[in-house]
Design a protein around this nucleic acid. Sequence first.
DNA 1: AGTGTATCCTGCAGGC
DNA 2: TGCCTGCAGGATACAC
Length: 254
Amino acid sequence: MAAVSVLRPDLLNEPAGPFVRGLEGRTVLDVGRRGKNVVLFFSADTVVVVNLGMTGRVLHRPLGDTTAAPTHPGVVLDLDGGGQAVYDDARRFGRLRRFDWLGWVRWSRTLGPEPLGRSFTARRLARDLGKSVSPVRSWLLDQRRVAGVGNIYANEALHRAGVHPSTPAKRVPPERVAPLHRAVRKVLRSAIQARGTTLRDYRDSDGRQGSFGPRLVVYGREDEACRKCRDTIARIVISNRSAFYCPTCQPELP
DNA sequence: AGTGTATCCTGCAGGC
DNA sequence: TGCCTGCAGGATACAC
């Protein structure tokens, strides 16, 4: 890597100096993911975890590329050969954290299981839901419980499973747990296949929009007709965040 | 210990 | 046209 430029130091978990010195001269060995975080693996056991927040994105710009133009560049990695990897973030809610190997392992352990991984089973979901009285929508957003579900897909999965978003986690009926487990996985797989949901800012690393938006059943569809039963989609606020649901498909528990 | 709220920041849509 | 308000894909420090 030829150079590291920090245009927005508030995006880092440390001062720009040590961040830059810790990456200069390193090679990008691999790019991975943990939950909703992009994980950059560098040589010398150096790892950078990129949390995208609401509007963050990692754009890969091969030499001469003009399609993935950053609008709010925060950190620029000049790659050997002339390309760039740019962390771009209008609202700057995102964060880049640099770890050594042990730090990365410890950080990763603070997150819950990958919802598409083998350890996330219906049995485990039933056990862990039973420990909490949080509304199930909040439960799904808590990265320490399951890593990688955001507000859009939490709402979509709850609709698919027929569970009202306000239901206390431990009150989700036992016969709805397996459907919820399947729904989370199905919604995530479908959305990944569609390369995500672009409401406004989201772009993939090539700068392209995701195409899952038109397939949303409840999210962002207040006062519109449920695609399943034609009832009117409702919106409520749980923990300061919008939850959307169909009153017929997702009846509130008595 | 577990849960809910306020806060970080910018940009855009809609109402007037 | 322009000003104002509300809202947004997330995570976390803090209060209770």
